[in-house]
């Protein structure tokens, strides 16, 4: 019984982590657009390449933040959540068993 519950917890955590990493789509699209525009800008004004590049890297790093939030949630779900959920479950089971 408890093995099934643990299995469900682990599976759901993994699925949740996978869903959380969908957040990577947004920064991917955004950074791609930013790079495209930067390429256009460099093509139009090659002399301002260094400025465009530094601004681009800064902007990309900022845009990456939302993706990183998803990544943190994913890491939490994979490495932290199962342990604590399983601990809570086991505690509940023992107290429930003791109550019985």
């Amino acid at each position: 019984m408890i093995e099934l519950a643990i299995g469900i917890i682990l599976g759901c955590c993994a699925i949740g982590a996978g869903i959380a990493l969908i957040a990577g789509i947004g920064p991917g699209i955004g950074e791609g657009q930013a790079v495209a525009k930067a390429c256009e800008a460099v093509g139009r004004q090659p002399e301002s390449k260094s400025q465009v590049t530094s601004t681009l890297i800064l902007g990309c790093a900022l845009a990456e933040t939302t993706g990183l939030y998803g990544l943190i949630i994913g890491i939490l779900l994979i490495f932290v959540a199962p342990g604590s959920f399983v601990g809570i479950l086991k505690e509940a089971m023992t107290s429930w068993g003791a109550g019985l």
Binding site: L62, E64, T65, L68, I72
Partner: peptide, 13 residues
């Protein structure tokens, strides 16, 4: 904080 921490920590992971 999460921007900085997330970047470095994800690299570490």
């Amino acid at each position: 904080s999460f921007r900085h921490y997330g970047n470095v920590m994800s690299g570490m992971v």
